[in-house]
Amino acid sequence: MNEYLLSTLATPCCSRALVKAATTILGDSLRDGDLLHDFDLSLTEACANVVRHAYRACPVGPLEIRLGVEHGSHVEVRVVDQGCGFPRLPHDIRNAEPDAEGGRGLYIIKKLADAVRISSDGNRHTLYFKKNIREDLWTTCD
């Protein structure tokens, strides 16, 4: 598995730049534009959660994206922060009501992934998701 680590400060501007960099890395391995858009969206949602919630009660800190690329098989993503932790781990990730302003980020990630996990280890909080990818959607060189 090829592994990549990208890190920045958890601000809206830096977060989007970090996601674009991660998507560019994935673009070396994945040939399908729709699939790359899905990763772009999932990563953006995961990082936006960190930017909006992780450091709400403490000074802004780091935001990490860790990519694991198993060529021909799957991609694993870990979005890590060192903030206050998740207030409550949702048992069931549901879509928001149609007229609600927020509450759709995790649902989008869940819809686009084959597995989603949220965990904490000390002050490191991780949102993990994995997506299995068909063989024909990978680039041929590795």
Partner: peptide, 16 residues
Amino acid sequence: TFIDSSGIGALVVFNT
């Protein structure tokens, strides 16, 4: 070219 859930939320509120 790209919209996330915060953008969708803004559209929802504006629509309402």
